[in-house]
Write a protein that binds this DNA or RNA. Structure first.
Ligand SMILES: [Mn+2]
Ligand SMILES: [Mn+2]
Ligand SMILES: [Zn+2]
Ligand SMILES: [Zn+2]
Lengths: 155, 155
DNA sequence: ACTGGGAATGAAAACCATTACCATTAGGAG
DNA sequence: CTCCTAATGGTAATGGTTTTCATTCCCAGT
């Protein structure tokens, strides 16, 4: 069930068509790379990974496609403070994988943290409602990051 | 009580001396500018403001000083997605002003939001404790930002 | 299946915030 | 007041991202 159901098209094709965007090899490959990524990739890392299977790719297309994917909500863009943007698939076939990030200020390591999501959800939903009423601000997204020292860097 | 008590030195001089840093006109002026800033300033905006009262200032010094101020915890550095870093005084003579940010994804406006801090504190303290134990991650700082549409951009 | 038009691409150059370099200045301990 | 060295500032370099523009190719309409 992950990716493609038998021979059916990947689950995200509909999202593309719905927005009037064309399906191209670069776009397919970039999403493919992102879906297999173990960690948060930079544009250049994505470029290198795509280049292995599709050498004609250009770095420009990587940037343009990532911007597009962020726009339609398929990809999240992060700044972990290392001078380059990091990208991560927002949702897979299994749905949205809700999580936040721990960033080590010493070695730069980034750790996904999926625990305590319930507390976060509670806090977030309350805050969103309140902000909507008080500030008349329509919240569509949020960012929570923790900074500190990872296990190795504490010694 | 704000800034200087009568003729006494500014409240942050101690922090500088304690770290072994020298007190210079550029540093004094940069903090001065930040303490009077109505909003979140970029390095260039700070440069222009300092330049008015101290024309000999160099942009390099702005960056170096801001890095220093961030390091000693006097200044917070933010990325609101407009391609340049934004800086904000972390604490004033009245103490730390705890708040988070609402970022309009359409016009880029950034709104300070100080309400619901209690809920945030509760959520944060719980999460920090848990992360400390479960992940062995020593949290020293955190970032919470909400993205959406401001009042004007909703129409 | 074919074709036309416009979206998408890629190579190269431009952009621009930030950093490195280095000769000069000046804070402040003694 | 002197000296040592941190701090400064002008300039050049860096490097991630964007712009430009000629070429390619997706795909709706036939
Ligand atoms: Mn993640
Ligand atoms: Mn603020
Ligand atoms: Zn670490
Ligand atoms: Zn707005």
């Amino acid at each position: 069930m992950p990716g493609r159901n038998g021979k059916g098209p990947p689950w995200w094709h509909g999202k593309f068509r719905g927005c009037g965007y064309r399906l191209t090899i670069p776009r397919e490959t970039i999403i493919e790379v992102l879906s297999k990524a173990a960690k948060h990739l930079s544009a250049e890392e994505i470029y290198l990974a795509v280049h292995k299977v599709y050498p004609a790719i250009g770095l420009t297309t990587i940037y343009r496609t990532l911007e597009l994917l962020v726009q339609i909500g398929l990809v999240f863009k992060f700044d972990f403070g290392d001078g380059r943007a990091r990208y991560e698939l927002a949702e897979g076939p299994k749905g949205i994988r809700q999580h936040h990030h721990l960033v080590c200020t010493n070695c730069g390591r980034v750790i996904d943290y999926t625990d305590f999501i319930d507390e976060a959800k509670e806090f977030l939903s309350q805050t969103m409602k309140a902000l909507n009423k008080k500030c008349n601000f329509k919240i569509t997204n949020h960012l929570i990051q923790f900074y500190g020292l990872c296990e190795k860097c504490q010694k």
